[in-house]
Structures are given as C-alpha cells and as structure tokens.
C-alpha cells in the first residue's frame, strides 16, 4: 500500500501539489487523470523520488511505501527505486542490445552469475509479452525496435528488477493504437502481481484498465474513487465536466 499524507510540493515558488491525501491499494491499477499541468505526473514521480533530480524542489508531508516513509533520511533511494520501478512516457531504451537493456538493472545490482541473469532476462521479457518478437534478435540494438516494442522492452527492463510497484507515466501516449492495446493488455495482465500506478491523458484508457481513478486539477486531488464511480457517477461537478470532455 502506498500512503500519501498531507503532501505539498513546490518547484521553487510554484506550488505544484496542495494537500494531497490518498491511499493506493496493492495489486490493483490506479489511474491518475487530469488536464496538463495538474500535478499528476509530479505526484507519480514523488513515489520513487525521481523529483530529487530537479533542483529547487521542496516537499512537505509524507509518502509511505509498504509502511516506510520514503523521504526518511535513513532510506536509500537506490533501494527504494528497486522496489518502485518506473516506465516513462517516451520509450527510452539504452543504445545497447535488447538483452543488455533488460540485464542492466540486474548488473547494477551486482548480479554476476550469467546464467541467472539470462533466466531473469528471459523471464522479464516473457512477462512483458515481447519474447516471441525478440527471441531471435536479443543481440540486436534495442533502438532498432518499433516504438511499441521499445516500450514493452522498457517494461521488461523494469520487471527484471522485480519491483513491487510499477509507476507508468503515460506509457502509451507516444504509441499507435495497436501498440497501445498491447500495453493495456499487458497492464491488466501484470495487475495480479504488481501494484500499478498509471498517469494517463486518455480517459477511455483509464476506464478500460484501472480499478481506481484519481482526478487532479490545479495541483489538488479533486476526487478519488473506484473508476466506475468516477466516470459514471462523479461526486464533483469538475470531475463530471472533465470526464465528459467539457474541458481539459
């Protein structure tokens, strides 16, 4: 379970998130929706501390992953990120071979046993539903794959480290409809084993794949409920206007 308690976040003077409180359940898909600049990606990146890389940011409040406050001084950020993996908006495979891309996370963790690495890589690529497509070309450069394949490779790369949580930042926004469908299918597939948080611009996508949906607007969490209610029976006027496409 991910608990977000009284979170306020600032980029220099800009107040990006205001008093966010929410609990994200395990082994379910939670979608963050909202118009551009509403803070949904910012909140996502707070969960594996990717915002640490940006200068001049400030956080108040607490974020707990599996009961541990991840912004506690004792927490090693590398350990946290092994537990909380991330898939980005644009596919970003390294300019290495397909195999090495997936093996990367294992190697940086100090795994030396080549046969174990091989098994884990194969396992991760299979989980990402990419194995049949790349089985024979594992030593080709990953940048030669199609966009959709690259994104599934990035998911495989993330899975190889065996995270508990997977954060997805608009993982299908740069892909064609067929590749998008494959990614969505994959997300539904992974749900049984992983806690998935997905940021999306595509409301139909949120409806198709998520169990719970959070609607953000101007840095505030407007409404957070199970997906069916958010889309069919929203409590707030703003949510209703957004999900029915009247703004955004």
């Amino acid at each position: 379970m991910i608990q977000i308690k009284n979170v306020n976040f600032y980029y220099k003077d800009f107040h990006a998130l205001t008093d966010i409180n929410m609990q994200i359940p395990d082994k379910a898909v939670t979608a963050f929706i909202g118009p551009s600049g509403c803070g949904k990606s910012t909140l996502l990146r707070l969960i594996n501390r990717m915002n640490d890389l940006i200068d001049g940011t400030r956080l108040t409040g607490n974020i707990l992953v599996e009961g541990q406050d991840i912004y506690d001084k004792k927490v090693e950020v590398e350990e946290l990120r092994k537990k909380v993996g991330m898939v980005f908006q644009k596919p970003n495979p390294f300019p290495k071979t397909i195999f090495e891309n997936v093996a990367y996370g294992l190697r940086v963790q100090g795994m030396k046993n080549e046969s174990e690495i091989k098994d884990r890589v194969e396992d991760a690529i299979k989980k990402a539903a990419l194995w049949s497509e790349v089985e024979r070309i594992l030593n080709n450069n990953a940048t030669n794959l199609s966009g959709g394949q690259q994104q599934r490779l990035c998911i495989a790369r993330c899975l190889a480290v065996e995270p508990h949580v997977i954060l997805m930042d608009e993982p299908a926004s740069a892909l064609d409809p067929i590749s998008t469908a494959k990614i969505e299918e994959l997300v539904l597939d992974l749900k049984s084993k992983y806690t998935i948080v997905i940021v999306t611009h595509n409301m139909q996508q949120a409806l198709r794949i998520s169990d719970n949906t959070a609607f953000f607007y101007l840095g505030e969490l407007v409404e957070y409920n199970n997906t069916r209610d958010i889309f069919h029976n929203p409590a707030q006027e703003k949510t209703k206007n957004y999900v029915t496409g009247q703004f955004g």
Binding site: G85, F88, V108
Partner: peptide, 10 residues
C-alpha cells in the same frame, strides 16, 4: 537515459 538508469536503482 539518466532517468531510465536511476529508476532501476542504479
């Protein structure tokens, strides 16, 4: 590239 690497715990 940096984010991808860091996100895997590097």
């Amino acid at each position: 590239m940096r984010e991808a690497s860091l996100a895997m715990g590097a």
